[in-house]
């Protein structure tokens, strides 16, 4: 159950249309009584759930586990193992600094430090107003543009610490 005292209401209850979207997807996968079969579909269900809700809080995890007849512990185990899944809400602007090797040798470290300083956030955190999330990503494969920063779907290449305020100002 979601906490009644804070704003974080149960997403499943709060967004019936989103829940319905997820259910339609899961039902289309052809579940059956075979546990092994259902477990094989877990990761793609979680991908879809995160795509729909933005993150995977406990209520969503419970919902998925019920749908797939899997233990909640198994679902949680998978979510906590893979970096792609997040249990905390992310900001409107997801700033990802590439921390792949090519970007690293070309100074992505100083760029990340500058983002941290400028936004007053640590890596993996979201600002209180949920506007910005700061993260690192392992190689976007655009090594020729290193160091690379990705804000949602937009790629910025050859980024220097000096460009940080400009990039943030564009997030409006």
């Amino acid at each position: 159950m979601a906490c009644q005292n804070c704003e974080e209401l149960d997403l499943i209850v709060k967004f019936p249309e989103k829940t319905a979207e997820l259910d339609t997807y899961i039902d289309s996968l052809g579940l059956n009584n075979d546990m092994e079969h259902n477990r094989g579909l877990l990761i793609q269900c979680l991908h879809r759930a995160q795509h729909i809700f933005g993150y995977l809080p406990l209520e969503v995890q419970k919902h998925v586990s019920k749908k797939l007849s899997l233990h909640l512990s198994e679902v949680y185990g998978v979510i906590s193992f893979y970096h792609y899944f997040t249990e905390t809400p992310v900001g409107r602007y997801k700033i990802n600094v590439c921390t792949g090797t090519a970007c690293f040798v070309k100074g992505a470290g100083t760029v990340l430090e500058e983002f941290k300083r400028y936004l007053n956030l640590e890596q993996g955190e979201t600002s209180a107003d949920r506007k910005f999330s700061l993260g690192g990503v392992r190689c976007l494969g655009a090594c020729s543009l290193a160091p690379v920063v990705m804000v949602n779907d937009k790629v910025y290449g050859n980024v220097t610490p000096k460009m940080v305020p400009e990039i943030i100002n564009e997030c409006k």
């Binding site: 092994e36 259902n38 477990r39 094989g40 579909l41 877990l42 990761i43 979680l46 991908h47 198994e74 185990g77 998978v78 193992f81 893979y82 970096h83 792609y84 899944f85 392992r138």
Partner: peptide, 19 residues
């Protein structure tokens, strides 16, 4: 889902199995 170790074949197989 973003796990480097899944490049290892036994780990990859577990990941396909949903573990």
């Amino acid at each position: 889902a973003g796990a480097f170790v899944c490049g290892e074949e036994t780990a990859l197989i577990h990941s396909i199995e949903g573990k």
